[in-house]
Amino acid sequence: MNFENILTETNNGITQVTINRPTKLNALNKDTIQELHEAFKAADKDKNTKVIILTGSGEKAFVAGADISEFANFSEEKGGKLAAKGQKILFDYVENLGTPVIAAVNGFALGGGLELAMACHIRLASDNAKMGLPEVSLGVIPGYGGTQRLPQLVGKGRALEMIMTAGMIDAETAKNYGLVNHVVAQAELMPLAEKMANKMMRNSSVAIAKAIKAVNAGLEEGKNGYKTEIKQFGKSFGTADFKEGTTAFLQKRTAEFPGE
């Protein structure tokens, strides 16, 4: 696929998706959001892709926010539709993807950028990363899931402090808050993401997808995570990956999962 605002590359089971708008600090506009949706959809359907790594081009920014010029003159109705569409085709879509997504956060992850990182399953950060939700300084609130995912990750008090002060936190603070899993030097960020991806690829991609579904259910209002876990656990017994995994264990050999 050819995109204007993102780059994609697949090697050895990993699809890297890079937001490539360096002159705009990789800010999200409607075209970039649509392209990301298409890239994630294609990678999820690609049997050669076991893990997706999302990052931003350059050393300054993962995503420095949304492209404010696109919605500065929106009405209430248009603003609501903007948030609803964005959440549906990108942020919620990524969170519920069966293929694991690792966000490699380099530099600024602000507003929609932090919201996108939070939608990913795991976040890694370079030591120069800065994160925040500055929307209230513009007279608006986070609209791509930030008011929901941030409290889940860091707790209500810290989330409200970040949102209401519109301030930024550094990478080490983000790690202490539980917002990111690991912090490394910028040169080590992508190697760490690839190392983690390779660990995931040794395991059953079918089981991983079911685990993502079960974990998400426990955080979703109106769903019973325990019931979802029981259902997905049971369904695992009907997969070729379960047969291979248990057979390999009993035969004391490394499993070669077919991904079915």
Rank of each mutant, 00 (worst) to 15 (best):
E256M: 04
F74L: 11
G86M: 03
N216F: 05
T228Y: 04
A211H: 11
G157E: 15
I212W: 07
M131W: 07
E220G: 03
G178I: 08
A211P: 02
I212F: 01
L179V: 04
N20P: 02
N128T: 15
L153M: 14
T254Y: 12
I6R: 01
A240C: 06
T18Y: 15
G218Q: 09
I141V: 08
G225W: 06
G225F: 04
A166D: 08
F257G: 05
P142F: 07
F91R: 07
I163A: 01
L114M: 06
Y177W: 11
P191W: 00
G58M: 10
A214C: 02
M168C: 07
Y144T: 05
I208F: 04
T239E: 11
E256R: 15
M168H: 06
G178M: 09
A27R: 13
T239Q: 08
R149N: 14
G145E: 07
G238Y: 08
F108P: 00
G178C: 11
K30L: 06
E220N: 10
I14H: 00
M131K: 09
K130S: 10
E4Q: 09
A61Y: 00
V180C: 05
T99E: 01
Q34P: 04
N128F: 13
V94M: 01
D44E: 13
D127K: 09
D67F: 11
R149Y: 12
F62P: 00
E260R: 15
K227W: 02
E256L: 07
P100S: 10
A39H: 00
N5T: 13
G155W: 02
K78C: 09
V206Q: 05
M164L: 12
V140I: 12
L189N: 01
N203R: 13
I6Y: 02
H182A: 09
K81D: 11
F74K: 08
L54H: 00
M1W: 14
N181G: 12
M162A: 10
L36N: 01
G139F: 04
L25E: 01
K231F: 03
S57I: 03
A166N: 13
K45V: 02
Q87P: 01
